[in-house]
Nucleic acid binder design. Structure first.
Lengths: 185, 185
DNA sequence: GCAGGAAAGCTACTAGCATTAGCCTAAGCG
DNA sequence: CGCTTAGGCTAATGCTAGTAGCTTTCCTGC
């Protein structure tokens, strides 16, 4: 019996493939093991538990989101950076809804996730730099941005908008609404 | 052996008690049965499956939210109605986070949930009546309202705001931001 | 080139879950 | 007072996560 050559990173890769195909609820160790061509208990050589796998998946997704969003705002600033960030986030979620669902909402409360969460947070804060916000005001603005983007995007990804009106238009209005809430420079 | 006297509604009541205590993930038929003082298979006399119980729970929560939110906006209109609706929703979610998590995001896509979802939707629409929005604009405004409120409230309920800044202040800013996006009359 | 040990796989097992089948009896109704 | 129905039960299946302990591959040191 030749060795499968798994690593923790490969198990996470496999988990991503599983949720992309079957949704977050389809994430079972049995599904991951089967796709990796291995018996279920063998996964325990690489991840401690299903809970830990979910955490690693969350880290991976946060890092991927940070990379995507950071790339989208490079070379822009001010209102166009805000718009670019929001649009990039929405595109990511539409392309990979299950991955977004796997991202923890409270990464800062878990030491293992805090670094990845801080990375994404910093990108949000960086985009709002230049509006002359004091420390506390910048935090509130970041929260508003996150609430608006997360609210729309999670509803859209879950089929939450039942009526036929154009969703691009709604999101555009949200972007403008948020930008209007920022101080004019 | 005396009869327990269960009904479908009582099973849903019990399910609510279970998630209030153990969170949405703690909702198992075993937990519901144990709390109802009954063996697990007995529940099948009243609900068809765990999936159906989740649906009934979703309906119950949507109805409860509709009642709470409707009561909060009675006798108000315009900006103060919007603010009252948003504050009432937040209070409900903070008081019963697991119930809110049990509410489906896409009720309109399931015939069994559509009526309950429409009820809540109508309250949102009613609050925005009086701003002189055309049909389509009213839909977009309702979506903005829902996205803002759901975004903040789901993040807050899940511990998503890690920093010590005052959350009441952030929410107040969101209310003002949304109101500012409505046409002045 | 070859031991030897760590790491990676395996099978076998336990316990908890949803669900089904089929039995038994309590409660209402003639 | 008996019959029927419906609400409870036990027993059993199959899937899940997780544990124990065995085997084998592969890398490292010599």
């Amino acid at each position: 019996m030749p060795r499968a050559g798994l690593t923790t990173a490969l198990v996470v890769d496999t988990a991503i493939a599983v949720i992309d195909e079957q949704g977050l609820d389809g994430l079972t160790l049995a599904a991951v093991a089967s796709r990796a061509g291995v018996a279920t208990p063998s996964l325990y050589k690489h991840v401690g538990s299903l809970t830990e796998l979910r955490k690693l998946l969350g880290i991976r997704v946060l890092e991927e989101m940070t990379a995507v969003v950071t790339a989208a705002v490079l070379g822009t600033s001010g209102d166009s950076a805000v718009a670019a960030l929001m649009r990039a986030l929405r595109e990511y979620v539409l392309a990979h809804p299950a991955r977004y669902a796997a991202a923890p909402l409270d990464p800062l409360h878990d030491p293992a996730l805090a670094a990845a969460g801080t990375g994404l947070l910093n990108t949000f804060l960086a985009v709002l730099r230049g509006y002359g916000l004091a420390d506390s005001a910048a935090i509130h603005a970041t929260r508003r941005l996150r609430a608006v983007a997360h609210g729309f995007v999670s509803l859209e990804a879950n089929g939450g908008f039942g009526l036929p009106e154009d969703l691009d238009e709604t999101y555009q209005q949200l972007i403008e609404m948020f930008i209007a809430s920022l101080p004019r420079g």
